[in-house]
Design a protein around this nucleic acid. Structure first.
Length: 824
RNA sequence: GCCGAAGUGGUGGAAUAGGUAGACACAGCAGACUUAAAAUCUGCCGAACGUAAAAGUUCGUACCGGUUCAAUUCCGGUCUUCGGUACCA
């Protein structure tokens, strides 16, 4: 029998597919179009790792499965090539980010091709190339013109020694990963995208998306809508005021102090002379903390009294103003009215500093004078609230807000936790921001016709306080598009999340240098029908892409609301130790040795069989050999089958053949039915299990004497087996398809259908229970009446031993499954 | 801390409009073939008690409790692990 040589065969088919243009998409035909997309990869020095394979290989199986259902597939792949790692690598080794990135991209493309996927390589893209980032800059300009891009101050991680901005991951326990210096939070002028303008729509749009519920939930919580009131407090002996946002205006009379974020603009202004030194010292400590630290409720509360007092607008009471790091300047107004009796954090703070705790909400069944041992944060009845006593929380919220509004001291307000998207980076390896600053005209957008603002190659990366581009004179110095006078360019670059927020729009239009995306093609081919990628992007990339889509729609460029109609997450493959794969932990597993030893098909099937696609799990490879064996078994079954139906011409039917044949047809249909349903849902492991059952059954049939094997049966079963396996092991299946006498690609065929009528067996097993415990299993004809089944169960000898002498209370019959007899 | 998930044999994993827990595999054990090994094939394979062997009984889906004739599935609580927490992508 023929031996299967995967090395030759896989290479051969990859070549044939490429040369015949099998995976090229015909964009003129949008009937039955299906845009399948996986999150593109960052071309890191670690090359393609198992995580990529785990994302891409099964998704490709899904795409091929869909192709065999007659869909016109568009399945592109590209590179998210700008980013921090290349720049860090450059700082460390001196290798230019462009050089290392280009090298990695070439290498990874070769590795991607080994997967044998249906990628249309004519439509690939690389976000670090001018012909891509030109349009990233164009996108920035569109948002800028619409007023969705603006500049403001925001804190960044700053290493005082290196004089450079650090990414969160470069901060290790509050210190700089390069030099170990204590990192501080420093304010810099930065560009933002106004994603908050779309908060409500981003929230509402979630409902109609075919996305995992958990992802929608995460975005929902991330956007964090809360309904409440904004209340203005006046500062005593001053004309200054500040606003607080609260979801509990009903507790306003329980406010015993106010707290400002240390960064609040009033914090120092209102502080009295004798407290200024303390406030300054406190602020110096706070800049050392990350937001994560500050939000941690397990830390003991800290804070300092400013010496100033605020006037409670509802009763003119004077209450002290403190500053504390548990109030964040980025949420709400950066100031809170503190109601220790009814807010956990305020309660803790009040305990630490001995501030008064005044109960204003009464919990049902408790007394007014009972002291609180912890904050009571639920609704209740108002007490100690002059003029509002006896009201329920819900009504009081409304009434108090109304009263404030009449006095111009407050109003109902919806607040979102979502913050605007900070898009500027003080780095080199990213797209330049297409803005210049003119001495006369101020901030001016670069003209669209002058795009791209090219990222220069010859720069100095060494961190020394300025963005690398700031030291590049010919880049920085330019002329104003308005007045032609002297101007300087923005020297920051754009967040790489911008590159990935619109790349799905670009793919079908790759090659068109006139526009970011062709209007006609986009209308026909977008949005993405199925998007596959990691759940770790839930609240960033996936939210940004939704925002950009909506913004471009409002600008008139797009006719749809959502970029990704349906979404599937592959699980994370962790190291064998269960921890995230990372170079520093030394637990990274690469695909090469597996592909080298067993071939792409085996590795694909292995990844799909050994993990639940959406779960992932720790790496383990004990079953790779088993899959290799299974594939050989399948291949040999096909070869043997071909031998049978090509040479067998004296078939004699026997009773045994009839029985085996009918069993084989049952398993064939049952397997195909399972494979259809499971593959559709990305449940590849169970689909492959059904395939294994079919192969096992085929071997059983082959154990009949040669002359008793029906060649027609064998031909049908083998043909369907090969077709069904094609999306899973594409190279092998093409080869087997050829062995079966076909000349064209198997992927032009239809996925084999199954016969629903053959899925029901005549006899079913019925479980007999007494008091919920299984006591007997019987064979019975399908669809017997409930009464009859009940009688059979009650008259069963074994069952009688459990029911004799007992009172039968109830009999539950689940058709074709089970009978439960309840006795006492 | 907060938000979102997950926890099932020695292992990877099946099964949830509540209805036979462990499909399909791996590892292991026993056997066939072989001079032998590999490869291949066949059988057994959650635990305890029980039996010469069966039969059988009880327990068992992280832990504690609840709802129900019936719970891996639904509800409440606890623990552990993973993802995110706004400059990793």
């Amino acid at each position: 029998m023929k031996e299967y040589n995967f090395k030759e065969v896989e290479k051969k088919w990859q070549k044939i597919w490429e040369e015949s243009g099998l995976h090229k998409t015909d964009f003129s035909e949008s009937k039955n179009k299906l845009y399948v997309l996986e999150m593109f990869s960052y071309p890191s020095g670690n090359k393609l790792h198992n995580g990529h394979w785990y994302n891409y290989a099964p998704s490709d199986t899904w795409a091929r499965f869909k192709k065999m259902q007659g869909f016109n597939i568009f399945h592109p792949m590209g590179f998210d090539a700008f980013g921090l790692p290349a720049e860090n690598f450059a700082i460390k080794t001196g290798v230019h980010p462009k050089d290392s990135t280009d090298k990695n991209t070439v290498f990874m493309t070769e590795q991607l091709k080994q997967i044998g996927a249906t990628y249309d390589w004519e439509k690939t893209l690389d976000t670090s190339k001018e012909n891509y980032y030109k349009w990233t800059q164009w996108l920035f300009l569109q948002l800028y013109k619409k007023g969705l891009a603006y500049k403001a101050n925001a804190p960044v991680n700053w290493c005082p020694k290196d004089k450079t901005v650090l990414a969160n991951e470069q901060v290790i326990n509050g210190t700089c990963e390069r030099c170990g210096t204590q990192v501080i939070r420093k304010k810099l002028s930065q560009w933002f995208f106004k994603i908050t303008d779309y908060a409500e729509e981003l929230l509402e749009g979630l409902e109609k998306l075919d996305w995992p519920e958990k992802t929608k939930k995460m975005q929902f919580e991330w956007i964090g809508k809360s309904i409440g009131s904004e209340i203005e407090f006046k500062i005593k002996n001053s004309d200054k005021t500040f606003k607080v946002f609260t979801t509990r205006p009903d507790t306003l009379l329980g406010a015993t102090y106010c707290t400002l974020a240390p960064e609040h603009e009033l914090a120092e202004q209102i502080t009295t002379q004798e407290n200024l030194a303390k406030i300054k010292a406190y602020k110096e400590e706070v800049v050392k903390l990350s937001e994560l630290d500050r939000l941690s409720a397990s830390r003991e509360k800290t804070g300092v009294f400013t010496g100033a007092f605020a006037i409670n607008p509802i009763n003119n009471e004077e209450i002290p103003i403190w500053i504390s790091d548990y109030v964040l300047v980025t949420y709400g107004t950066g100031a809170v009215m503190a109601v220790p009796a009814h807010d956990e954090r305020d309660f803790e703070f009040a305990k630490v500093f001995g501030l008064p705790i005044r109960k204003v909400i009464l919990q049902k069944g408790t007394k007014i004078e009972t002291e609180l041992s912890e904050a009571y944060t639920e609704n209740g009845t108002l007490v100690n609230s002059h003029g509002f006593d006896g009201m329920e929380s819900v009504l009081a919220k409304q009434k108090i807000t109304e009263t404030l509004k009449q006095n111009g001291k407050g109003e109902a307000k919806i607040n979102y936790r979502l913050r605007d998207w900070l898009v500027s980076r003080q780095r080199y390896w990213g797209s330049p921001i297409p803005i210049v600053n003119c001495e006369k005209c101020g901030e001016v957008a670069v003209c669209e016709k002058d795009l791209p603002v090219t990222l220069p190659y010859d720069v100095e990366f060494t961190p020394d306080g300025d963005s690398p581009l700031a030291k590049h004179k010919t880049f920085k110095d330019t002329t104003c598009p308005n007045c032609n006078g002297k101007a300087i360019r923005e020297v920051d670059t754009l967040d790489t999340f911008i590159c990935s927020s619109w790349y799905y729009l670009r793919y079908p239009s790759v090659g068109n240098d006139e526009v970011a995306f062709d209007f006609e093609i986009t209308k026909k081919w977008l949005p993405v029908d199925r998007y596959v990628g990691g759940a770790e992007h839930a609240t960033k990339h996936l939210l940004y892409a939704r925002f950009v889509t909506k913004a471009l729609r409002d600008l008139g460029f797009l006719g749809f609301d959502e970029p990704f109609l349906s979404l599937t997450h592959q699980g994370t493959i962790t190291g064998a130790d269960g921890r995230k794969m990372s170079k520093s932990l030394g637990n990274v597993i690469n695909p090469e040795p597996y592909v080298e030893e067993f071939g792409s098909d085996v590795f694909r099937v292995y990844l799909m069989f050994n993990f639940a696609f959406e779960e992932g799990g720790p790496w383990e490879d004990s079953q790779v050999k088993a899959i290799n064996k299974f594939i050989k078994r399948l291949y040999n079954a096909v070869q043997n089958g071909i031998l049978v139906f090509e040479t067998q011409n004296n078939f004699v039917q026997t009773q045994e053949e009839k029985k085996a044949g009918s069993e084989l047809y049952y398993v064939l249909n049952n397997s195909l039915s399972g494979i259809w349903k499971d593959t559709e849902k990305f449940h590849f492991n169970t689909a492959i299990a059904r395939m294994m059952e079919l192969v096992n059954e085929i071997y059983k049939y082959f154990s009949l004497p040669k002359e008793n094997q029906n060649p027609a049966t064998v031909r049908e079963v083998i043909t369907k087996l090969v077709l069904a396996f094609a999306p899973f092991a594409p190279h092998l299946s093409e080869e087997m398809w050829r062995d079966l006498g076909n000349t064209d690609s198997i992927f032009k065929e239809s996925f084999p259908k199954y016969d629903e009528s053959k899925l029901q067996k005549e006899m079913v097993e019925i479980v007999l229970q007494v008091n919920g415990k299984i006591r007997e299993k019987i064979e019975a004809e399908r669809d017997l009446g409930t009464k009859l089944v009940e009688e059979i169960a009650l008259s069963n000898e074994k069952i009688k031993t459990f029911t004799d002498g007992k009172q039968i209370l109830k009999v539950i019959v689940v058709p074709n499954k089970l009978v439960n007899i309840v006795v006492r």
